[in-house]
């Protein structure tokens, strides 16, 4: 309410911007004893998307909890995050974190990027979101088996829609066919994947019953499923999701597939062990803080915190797995 009180509009605006908007005033906040004075968070995407929201939430919560003296967010957009990755690979400031995730793992392969995730120092995985496989309400498919059987039989007559080619949705489609026992060589010839630039656009194709099935993040489709416009066949995590309690996981349905769209942070490759330790401590304290838990609640992100050697191992396994899937769906040679 304080925005308006000052009356004269322009002055009020400047004041309001100054009071609420930005990092300028949060230089205090008990940062005196923080191990990291100035943290720079690089978001390898434009404002508004998932990575940007993660980066900005980290900025706000770390400052609020006094884990760092101050934090800044820089957006470096481009090529599925690989432009930002290239920046971090050459970054020399040890107090830098790059927001990244599964999408970047795929993008590095499909873009044949010079900079690779292996060149960075993994810090932690923070959040994840499950994928959901849906069909239009008019669809004949009642279970995930119906859909997979039809693809096995009729191949490309069955069209599956989702986000960009080589993204999480496309990868899950490939993994599903792998798990159904389809030989690697046949997957590229059987999967008719209709790529859109985002989940919203693919939703239009599903609601108009123009495609056979769709894959996207749970948050993109859940509302439509609850309203009865779409039918959810399966979710992709290890446990069912709260928003869709009646939808089985792929594992329950008999497919050995677990894939979540995870997000995490990495640091420049050049940092030493002590610097890595300081960053890991700060991020671990963030993940355990009340502020971060409240953020997860508010944004409906699943907590998927994983740090240290466990994250290193997870990341290596993830990169190898994604590479084989992308080969099978014919995007990477």
């Amino acid at each position: 309410m304080r925005i308006i009180r000052s009356g004269a509009a322009p002055v009020g605006i400047v004041l309001a911007l100054a009071l609420t908007g930005c990092s300028m005033l949060e230089s205090s906040g008990g940062g005196g004893d923080a191990a990291i004075d100035e943290l720079s968070i690089v978001v390898p995407a434009g404002p508004g998307g998932g990575w940007d929201q993660t980066g900005r939430a980290m900025q706000a919560d770390m400052q609020e909890e006094g884990l760092v003296g101050s934090a800044t967010v820089t957006n470096v957009d481009g090529a599925g995050g690989t432009v930002g990755l290239a920046n971090i690979a050459t970054e020399t400031d040890p107090n830098t974190l790059l927001v990244m995730g599964l999408v970047m793992v795929g993008a590095v392969e499909t873009n044949e990027a010079q900079a690779r995730i292996e060149q960075t120092t993994p810090i932690a995985r923070l959040t994840e979101e499950q994928e959901v496989i849906v069909v239009p309400k008019e669809s004949p498919y009642e279970t995930i088996d119906d859909l997979v059987d039809d693809i096995t039989e009729n191949g490309k007559k069955v069209s599956i829609t989702g986000g960009s080619a080589g993204g999480t949705d496309h990868i899950l489609a490939g993994m599903l066919l792998q798990a159904s026992g389809m030989p690697s060589g046949n997957i590229a010839n059987s999967l008719n994947y209709i790529a859109y630039s985002g989940g919203g656009e693919s939703l239009a194709a599903l609601l108009g019953n123009n495609v056979s099935a769709g894959i996207s993040g749970v948050s993109e489709y859940a509302e439509q499923v609850q309203a009865g416009e779409l039918r959810a066949l399966a979710v992709s995590g290890s446990e069912r999701v709260d928003a869709l309690p009646d939808t089985p996981t792929l594992t329950e349905a008999g497919y050995d597939v677990v894939l979540t769209n995870w997000r995490g942070v990495v640091a420049p490759g050049s940092i030493d062990d002590a610097e890595k330790e300081a960053l890991t401590t700060a991020v671990t304290e963030l993940a355990e803080s009340d502020a971060w838990q409240a953020t997860l609640e508010e944004k409906a992100w699943d907590d998927a915190f994983l740090a240290g050697d466990e994250f290193d191992t997870y990341l290596d396994g993830n990169i190898a797995e994604i590479k084989t899937v992308l080969k099978d769906i014919g995007l990477v040679r």
């Binding site: 911007l17 100054a18 908007g21 930005c22 990092s23 300028m24 230089s27 967010v73 957006n75």
Partner: peptide, 20 residues
Amino acid sequence: GLLGLSLPAGPLLEGVPFLR
């Protein structure tokens, strides 16, 4: 400073908080 665009202030103005 006010809208939070990532315009680099440069080494000379590094320490000025409201420019960042």
